[in-house]
Design a protein around this nucleic acid. Structure first.
Lengths: 137, 137
DNA sequence: CTTGACCTTAGGGTGTACTCCAAGGTTTAT
DNA sequence: ATAAACCTTGGAGTACACCCTAAGGTCAAG
């Protein structure tokens, strides 16, 4: 499919797709005789991956590194690829841990809060964070 | 403490601290007679919160919103604060879910990989993602 | 065969989050 | 008392991730 249809399907602009191509994140599978970009189902998968990664806070250069694991598969040894993968996985695990602390903080905050119409005296995220910090650190 | 010591303690630049103050994320507790910014332990807690939030992918304006929960505590009802808190919590839960999928993908990738010195033929993050997508969607 | 909806590249503009001066005031040590 | 090491504001510059416009080429429908 051409860039317009692909963009609509993925919910991004054509500008974004050209930008990603320029920066080595997603090169369309081929070009038509007239030079139009042609995207395929494989491109949809890769783009979905990029968007999910972006959504959880990875920068484009970090995402590029993740995609390098694929690109490097012929040029690098299994050992190197495995190391890089595990390193990235640890980073993801750290972020999950931090987010879990945020989740706990917000849960505690909501629980503490009566939910009524009176002024929210005890509703301080910082107070709650101090409690959480006290418990987990 | 003054801005330099505070910055060193938190591992950020003084420019960043002045930027955060300007944009309403962290206002130092007080100023000295000569106009120097004076930071306290409370500021350390708030700054740590900001840095952790940033680290897990929140933008500065999102972080500001989180901090508003504190600021609004006297001006808004418990009900409003609770709603906002739960909404933010759901957002965090979604990110945790996505990150967990990334973690699983990277784990599967590492597991598939023999880790030896030969070219990494089967080490494609996309192949693995397809597997994961097939299993979880 | 031309209108309209698509596509191309090149290049400029925007918002976010810093980062780096410049010009000057303050504090501390010798 | 003066140099070094801090601090102040204001404003300019940078990197990232787009977003928009201009000027022109492509293509299917009427």
């Amino acid at each position: 499919m051409k860039i317009g249809e692909f963009a609509r399907k993925l919910g991004v602009s054509t500008d974004t797709l050209r930008y990603y191509e320029k920066h080595g994140l997603l090169t369309p599978s081929s070009r038509s005789q007239s030079g139009y970009r042609i995207y395929t189902d494989t491109d949809i998968k890769q783009m979905s991956f990029i968007l999910r990664a972006k959504n959880v806070g990875f920068s484009l250069s970090e995402i590029k590194e993740l995609l390098q694991i694929k690109i490097h598969k012929d040029q690098h040894s299994c050992h190197e690829v495995k190391e890089m993968t595990l390193q990235k996985r640890d980073l993801v695990a750290q972020r999950i841990e931090e987010l879990t602390r945020f989740y706990d903080s917000l849960s505690l905050l909501a629980k503490k809060c009566c939910g009524g119409e009176e002024p929210a005296e005890n509703c301080s995220i910082l107070t709650t964070l101090e409690d959480i910090d006290g418990l987990t650190h």
